[in-house]
Design a protein around this nucleic acid. Structure first.
Length: 276
DNA sequence: TTTCTTGTTTTCAG
DNA sequence: ACTGAAAACAAGAA
C-alpha cells in the first residue's frame, strides 16, 4: 500500500525511466481511473514531454511541457511499469502512455482505486485535495510548533489523526502504527492529551522512520513494487504492523491487533500506554 | 456468500 | 462553523 516512502520510490524510478520522453499516444482502457473528461485527457497529452516528476504527500505530479500537470494517486494497489510496446499487456493495465521511442508507461491497478487528473500546472495548488494537504514531513516544513498546535485542537485518538493528511502528509496505516510503537504512544490516546515531549518524539520518529523507509525502497506487504518491479525492503524493519500474536521486540509482550476508527491497528499493550 | 483490505470523500449528528 | 464518528465507495481475493 503506497504511503509516502513507496510513492517516493516510484517517483525516483520513473525519473530514471521516463523523464524527457515524449508521448505519442495515450489510451485509457478503464475510464473511471480518470477524473474529468477522458477524451480530453488522451488528446491533451498527445505530443507532450515529461519535464519532471514531483511528489506531494502520496500524490505523484507529472509535469509536462506547455504548463500541463498530471496528478496521480495510487491509492491501494496502483503501479507504474515501463515496457516495450511489443510486450504483451499485463492483467489489470488500465491506462497506457505510449512514447515516440516505442516504450510505454503502463498504469496497473488490481483494485482500480487509483485516480489520475490532468490540470494546468499553475492550478495544481488549487486542487482541493492538494491545497488542504499538511506539511511535507521530509522537507523541513514539518515544524514542531505547528504539530503541537494541530494536535492541541484534536480530541480524537492519535491514530486517525496521523492518518489525516491535513495534519501531516504521507502517513498511511503501516507507518502510523510503526511511529506510535517507536514513540511508545497508545493509538487510542486522545491527541490533545499528548505532552509536548511526546509530540516532539513522535515528530522525530515520523521523520526518521519515513527517511529510513525511503532509503529501503519502501515496504512491500501484499503487492507493492516500484517502477522497476522491485519489492521494497522495509517490511523487514516493521515492529508492529502485521505482527499480532508475535512478541514485542522491546519487551516481549504479545503484539495486539484492534480496530481504531475502522482501521486495523497494531500495538504493544505493555510499551504503549494511554496518557490520561 | 461473507469478510477483509485502505485512502479518501461524503454524510450526518451534535 | 466546526468536530468527529460512521458510512460509502472503489474491486478483488480468499
Amino acid at each position: 500500500m503506497p504511503e509516502l516512502p513507496e510513492v517516493e520510490t516510484v517517483r525516483r524510478g520513473l525519473v530514471k525511466l521516463i523523464k524527457n520522453k515524449t508521448i505519442k499516444k495515450v489510451k485509457v482502457i478503464y475510464p473511471k481511473i480518470i477524473t474529468g473528461d477522458v477524451g480530453q485527457f488522451e488528446q491533451q497529452l498527445h505530443g507532450k514531454s515529461i519535464q519532471s516528476i514531483g511528489r506531494r504527500g502520496k500524490l505523484l505530479l507529472f509535469n509536462f511541457d506547455q504548463g500541463l500537470t498530471m496528478i496521480s494517486h495510487l491509492r491501494m494497489e496502483g503501479k507504474y511499469f515501463v515496457k516495450s510496446s511489443l510486450e504483451p499487456l499485463e492483467k489489470h493495465t488500465h491506462v497506457i502512455f505510449e512514447f515516440v521511442d516505442g516504450s510505454q508507461l503502463r498504469y496497473n491497478d488490481v483494485r482500480k482505486f487509483g485516480r489520475m487528473q490532468l490540470i494546468k500546472t499553475q492550478q495544481v495548488k488549487e486542487v482541493p485535495n492538494l491545497a488542504k494537504l499538511g506539511p511535507e514531513p521530509l522537507d523541513n516544513q514539518f515544524l514542531l510548533v505547528d504539530f503541537i498546535q494541530k494536535l492541541a485542537g484534536k480530541k480524537k485518538a492519535i491514530k486517525p489523526v496521523l492518518l489525516d493528511q491535513t495534519v501531516v502528509a504521507g502517513l498511511g496505516n503501516i507507518y502510523a502504527d510503526e511511529v506510535l510503537w517507536l514513540s511508545k504512544i497508545h493509538p487510542l490516546t486522545p491527541a490533545n492529551k499528548l505532552s509536548p515531549a511526546q509530540i516532539s518524539l513522535l515528530r522525530q520518529q515520523i521523520i526518521k522512520e519515513l527517511t529510513a523507509a525511503v532509503a529501503a525502497g519502501g515496504t512491500t506487504i501484499r503487492s507493492y513494487t516500484d517502477a522497476f518491479e522491485h519489492s521494497g525492503k522495509f517490511q523487514f524493519d516493521l515492529h508492529v504492523y502485521g505482527r499480532q500474536g508475535q512478541p514485542c521486540q522491546r519487551c516481549g509482550t504479545e503484539i495486539v491487533k484492534i480496530r481504531v476508527a475502522q482501521r486495523g491497528t497494531h500495538f504493544c499493550p505493555n510499551c504503549q500506554r494511554v496518557t490520561k
